[in-house]
Design a protein around this nucleic acid. Structure first.
Lengths: 228, 228
DNA sequence: GAATTATTCGAACGAACGTTCGAATATAAA
DNA sequence: TTTATATTCGAACGTTCGTTCGAATAATTC
């Protein structure tokens, strides 16, 4: 069974490199409350004020802990950003895979993809905003690792679109690969852009539910996509 | 005739407040090469490394001028970001209005809107990336001014969609206002997300032209939008 | 050419930042 | 209770940052 990366504090000097490579290798989710607390609050602050405008002192104050104490759980601020990004991404993909196991035809699978993405996005708005907005505040190995996840996530969507396109026999006017690439990126644009306008407080218990947004985006997308 | 905001250097202590309010009031574009150079290069650096990761020393080095000399042209780094954002936004809207004067039916006007947006986006990729990505690095009055432009730009698109929706007689299943809001924001998502994947060097003189991207996005969008 | 104005500059200031270190405290193991 | 381990902390270090200031230079006006 697939899981998100194991996250444990302490002895990071020895454990860090292993964590980077052991990703997706473990069997159970090791839960360490304090670190998740840190990731959660940090994501909130990063989403609210931006990564570079949030100081470690801000984070320490938010968590009612000491500045130096934070560094027991990670080695650098950049690693903190990486951990937030990695955990969010792994969670979305994990949740998606669970739902895809019981989803049938290509179109339904696309529905599942969009709804899963939007659902996770708005219920973890801070973390996903950070993931969408600050991913090139990462550098080096951190950047590469998150970028690889992005590419594989995009690949999942592109494969779905390929299935859908093949299912209908019309010859497309455009080269299929190109059409699928632009389509997939457009769909991601629709979905990810929500972080700039979706307000969970404003929309909670209101008529504009995730289900409605998800349905309309799929409609908007699918009719255009299927119409040559 | 509408123009972009007048931009002149020097005596900023007196001239600044006036510039903020005189926006769109002048008749001709006052051109001051050096300041445009600064805005252009700064936009490049901001797009490349992010606003907060670009220091005034970096910018001075890029322009082969002194650090202190920069402050002759603006008062704070934040004002510099504001000037970039304002000039870009005004230019897009100005260019759009020129093209809309000679565009007929609602659907064609939507085509013009999308093509104008994407065209300006990719030919001024740095500045537009900054505008899309760093606009909430602004605060106070700066933020409000750019936000107001954003809202009015969104309103233009929503009005177009309203015209299109009215032109066809089908009763929509969803409340029209809501449908138009989500549709407009989805379309902006498609377009603005391009800054994360469009590579001008890679796509220059290649098969993936702006016209093709624009056409496909309009197709993708319109067929879904018109289909209830 | 003198006077005025516009533009550039070197040097420095104070503040904020990420990070480190050794000591202190809490927790668990023996 | 003693020992070992896990966690927190105050204080400080070195760096980088945006910004300022008064002087120097260039351009323009008279």
């Amino acid at each position: 069974m697939e899981t998100v990366a194991e996250i444990v504090p302490g002895k990071r000097h020895q454990g860090f490199k292993q964590m980077l490579t052991q990703d997706h290798a473990g069997e159970s989710i090791h839960y360490h409350g304090k670190l998740y607390d840190i990731l959660d609050r940090a994501a909130m602050l990063f989403a609210q004020n931006g990564y570079h405008n949030t100081s470690m002192r801000d984070l320490a104050a938010e968590l009612k802990t000491s500045l130096a104490g934070l560094y027991y759980y990670f080695e650098t601020k950049e690693e903190l950003l990486f951990l937030i990004s990695q955990y969010s991404f792994d969670s979305v993909i994990l949740s998606l895979n669970e739902k895809l196991n019981q989803a049938g035809d290509p179109v339904e699978r696309l529905n599942v993809f969009v709804h899963n993405h939007l659902q996770y996005f708005v219920t973890h708005l801070s973390a996903m905003k950070v993931l969408s907005h600050e991913s090139d505040s990462l550098s080096g190995e951190y950047f590469e690792l998150i970028n690889a996840k992005k590419k594989s996530y995009l690949q999942i969507l592109e494969n779905m679109l390929l299935d859908i396109a093949r299912a209908q026999s019309n010859q497309p006017h455009m080269r299929l690969n190109q059409k699928i690439k632009i389509s997939a990126l457009s769909l991601f644009g629709m979905m990810n852009w929500t972080y700039t306008w979706f307000n969970p407080d404003k929309h909670k218990n209101q008529s504009l539910s995730i289900q409605k947004i998800s349905d309309q985006m799929v409609n908007l997308f699918l009719h255009g996509f299927l119409k040559d």
